[in-house]
Amino acid sequence: MESNRRSFLKIGGICALGLGALPVTKALARKALPQVSDFPEALKANQWAMVVDMKKCWEQADRDCKDCILACHQYHNVPDIGTIKEEIKWLWQESYHDTFHDQATKFNIANIEHNPIMVLCNHCTSPPCVRVCPTKATFKDKKSGIVKMDYHRCIGCRFCMAGCPYGARSFNFRDPIPYIKTELNMAYPARERGVVEKCSFCTERLARGLFPACVEACRHGALTFGDITDADSPVRKLLAENYSIKRRPELGTGPNVYYII
């Protein structure tokens, strides 16, 4: 009995000492080099989101404008495999009818059924791809809300592709490098055969204080980027003023790409 109490006191004492020492070690650690951090110019948000104003896109006389896609695919060294089967795409067009098949009607205004819609990863608030990944190779970045890919860790099981209800993920069925037909971006890597890839909301550009490549490339201001949790952000302002829709909200994934139609 006695010895038990003694050992209890001892252990308690050590614990208290440890707690007391914590701020000291922290202060010491703050000075110690090397250390890592964000760039000071990095753009920050709790949850990045995009509003795609398709009206602005459709109004253009130049209906073949693909500036955003080209900018994205060139920037990220996305290959052009050339077959539907193995296509790799981060940002692309689908028809209104196919994208919003749950709300398509035959008698829509101005025949928008066949109009293009820009589609990309929705960087869901509750992403099923992240839920199913067996290695955490795809994960939800807590700092920015971006659904990221760790190409070093992906085992290529393609569970995330089955889990994604938006078809936003592409698999590298073959070595992609010979198929990069745009000019190589020396500042960004390519991918290897056997991993899954998708839109990254240009994490690496945000870190340098730049907006995503597609947003920057759009000449017509159809793409707006910002923090959905910030009431003063440009995306929230747009959403407050316009009626918008999201892809398949009934699935509970919480997509963060909004469409103004």
Partner: peptide, 22 residues
Amino acid sequence: DLGKPMRLLNVILYPSPNSILF
């Protein structure tokens, strides 16, 4: 079926109980 079978052990190295595959 794996695209990167040499990384198979990542399933054990980074155990993810949220994944049914685990």
